[in-house]
Write a protein that binds this DNA or RNA. Structure first.
Length: 426
RNA sequence: GGAGGAGUGACUGAGUGGCCGAAAGUGGCGGUCUUGAAAACCGUUGUCCUUCACGGGACCGUGGGUUCGAAUCCUACCUCCUCCGCCA
């Protein structure tokens, strides 16, 4: 959420930011409601002041045994008037609140202006793409041939877009989770957490998924609960409503969780394989920082995510998302895209964002500076470190061998109990 | 699921209709004293809205109600705790 005062005072800038994102939001209703609100507020406050003053007088009169009946009559009317105005006020306030919650964050000046992913800015390419002397296969073919992925039976159990890992496949997925967590915890200084996989509406408002993107979520019928679309939601809400100490910042947390997404509107896209699933595993990184350090911390977060790919010897590139492609809550986002030989494409495997105050304002997360008594909003950052299912897919495709087997990257071998190759398992 | 109890400022905790934005203590900050530190003592210490400002207003878990007036009374809800039942 943006500061409503900032929106009021910088309307052209905010309108332009929204336009650059490719959304179309009408600000006239807001301006009117905002004006109306201040008008009503001035009026009710005057009346309240009057009531407070006269009520004191009534108390005094009653104490000294004087008659206060006419004042009481007057105040009865004043109270009714206040009640009526309050009703108007709360409806205007509701309009403003809803509007404020539906406004996206303002992109950082460094973010390229553009319409869609074609205008993202390439930052770098790392690692050597593997060369193959044989006809390469997609990860789903490899996985099914080896008997470690079974989409047919997964569909029987749940439906399309659900994974069923078997045998070494299940172990590899688990190995990846442990491998990623261990690096972030022991080498990058993140605190391990294991949050709820189901959250309430408030948490989703805090991170920005609600109220605008409800159709992307799985909601529990009969409950005000949702399955998390990313562990960013529970993790960025850990300190909701709290005032943190400056000395405790930055707070860096990591967690593995499954993620659940309805993928509404993505019919026909990535229908095969592990790329786009209703349920997938992810190791997530979340930071709470001071405003002056947040961009430095964003670069560090990106580097932390890149480390995983480097250790796995997977080639990747980093892009800065343009204004048309960046997420609702972010001011700036780097995407890491891993090389997928089977698709002859780079595919997103991590998204690292700075949300600045946007989520902190929604979730009311502040910190107190040593030299200032007024608490300030923290900056929140999040990034995948990494999407596990897509990493699994990238390993199958990049490490496939002529005989259909898959070489396990050296760094994962200890996590696989010494296994170096995945061979056909019937 | 049944029966009780509780939610007040960073924390502990007083406050049962007007004198309460709220006692006291702890913690924090500033100071006195001290070579330095501790102790002691003195002072200070919530958030938000509105206004150019002076000022005004709101906030005692949340919403609704009673009242001229609510932290205080009524009501619904939320959260936490204790006991019983069930349960991985």
């Amino acid at each position: 959420m943006l500061d409503i005062k900032y929106v009021r005072d910088h309307l052209p800038e905010v309108e332009n930011a929204v336009k650059n994102r490719g959304s179309d939001i009408d600000f006239t209703g807001f301006s009117e409601a905002d004006k109306k609100r201040r008008q009503l507020l001035a009026e009710t406050e005057d009346l309240r002041h009057k009531r407070n003053t006269v009520s004191d007088e009534i108390a005094r009169k009653k104490k000294s045994g004087d008659d206060a009946q006419s004042e009481i009559e007057d105040m009865r009317k004043v109270s009714d008037r206040i009640k009526a105005l309050d009703k108007d006020l709360s409806s205007v306030q509701e309009t403003i609140d809803q509007f404020a919650l539906s406004l996206p964050n303002i992109p950082h000046p460094d973010v390229p202006v553009g319409r869609d992913e074609d205008e993202n800015r390439l930052e770098k390419q790392v690692g050597e793409k593997p060369r193959f002397e044989f006809e390469i296969k997609s990860h789903w073919e490899i996985g099914e041939n080896l008997g470690i992925l079974d989409f047919t039976r997964a569909a029987k159990i749940a439906g399309s877009r659900f994974p069923l890992y078997m045998k070494s496949g299940a172990r590899l997925e688990r190995a990846l989770i442990n491998f990623m967590l261990d690096i972030h915890i022991t080498e990058h200084g993140y605190t391990e957490t294991l949050p709820p996989f189901i959250v309430n509406k408030n948490s989703l408002i805090g991170t920005g998924q609600l109220p605008k993107f409800e159709e992307d979520l799985f909601k529990l019928e009969g409950w005000d609960y949702y399955l998390i679309p990313t562990s960013e939601v529970p993790m960025a809400n850990i300190y909701g409503g709290e005032v943190l100490k400056e000395d405790d910042l930055p707070i860096k947390v990591t967690a593995y969780t499954p993620c659940f997404r309805s993928e509404a509107g993505s019919y026909g896209r990535d229908t095969k394989g592990l790329i786009r699933q209703h349920q997938f595993n992810k190791v997530e990184l979340v930071k709470y920082t001071t405003p002056e350090n947040s961009y430095q911390e964003l670069d560090a977060l990106l580097a932390n995510a890149e480390t995983i790919l480097q250790r796995l010897d997977l080639p990747y590139q980093v892009v800065t998302l343009c204004t048309g492609d960046i997420g609702f809550s972010a001011t700036k986002t780097y995407d890491i895209e891993v090389w997928m030989p089977g698709q002859d494409k780079y595919r997103e495997i991590s998204s690292c964002s700075n949300c600045e105050e946007f989520q902190a304002r929604r979730a009311n997360i502040r910190y107190r500076r040593k030299d200032q008594k007024k608490p300030l909003y923290v900056h929140t950052l999040n990034g995948s470190g990494l999407a596990v299912g897509r990493t699994f897919a990238a390993i199958l495709e990049n490490c496939q061998q002529a005989d259909g087997t898959v070489r396990i990257p050296d760094a994962l071998v200890p996590y696989m109990g010494g296994q170096t190759v995945i061979e056909h398992e019937s």
